[in-house]
């Protein structure tokens, strides 16, 4: 019985992990990024890691002109204009619901708390080549890793 429960738990966990690479779900906001490598960050406007990531990683990547950078806030109360102004962001910061974020990131199963920012790196063909785990992936918040992924996607 214990073995069966363990197998069920493991299979549930395995199925909860989105498969990669996979085509990015259609999102109107991303249409200006068509044909370009894109770094998309799902953020919460009050999250310190999201502030650090958008300001110190995403903004320089965007300024370098190598990627199309997009941040989308999925917190209901978030003020995206204030967030962009405070972080000095020159790329667009949009707002969508948590459900859209979950669908985009391929999160299935019960709606558990997620680690933010949720980062997705999409190649020029619209395929997600890297993305954060539902619990968050600090490694995908490092510029050196993002640079390596962009290099490998060329």
């Amino acid at each position: 019985m214990k073995k069966i429960l363990l197998l069920l738990t493991l299979s549930a966990l395995a199925s909860a992990q989105p498969k990669l690479p996979r085509p990015a779900p259609a999102l109107n906001l991303l249409s200006p990024c068509k044909g370009r490598p894109t770094v998309l960050a799902w953020i919460v406007t009050t999250c310190p890691h999201c502030k650090a990531f958008t300001h110190s990683v995403l903004e320089p990547e965007y300024e370098s002109g190598r990627v199309c950078a997009v941040a989308i806030a999925f917190d209901d109360e978030g003020d995206t204009a204030k967030f962009a102004r405070e972080q000095g962001l020159t790329f667009p910061v949009y707002k969508l619901s948590r459900e859209v974020m979950r669908a985009f990131m391929g999160m299935t199963g019960p709606d558990r708390p997620v680690g933010t920012p949720q980062v997705a790196i999409i190649d020029k063909h619209g395929i997600i080549q890297a993305q954060s785990e539902p619990a968050g992936s600090p490694i995908l918040q490092r510029r050196v890793i993002i640079d390596s992924i962009l290099e490998a996607m060329k």
Binding site: Q17, P18, L20, P21, I128, Q129, A130, Q131, S132, E133, S137, I139, L140, R142, V144, I145, S148, I149, E151, A152, M153
Partner: peptide
């Protein structure tokens, strides 16, 4: 989760 191959040295340095 990363589908593309990135240099091992970068990952090792982070670890």
């Amino acid at each position: 989760m990363i589908a593309v191959k990135i240099p091992m040295s970068v990952l090792m340095w982070l670890y």
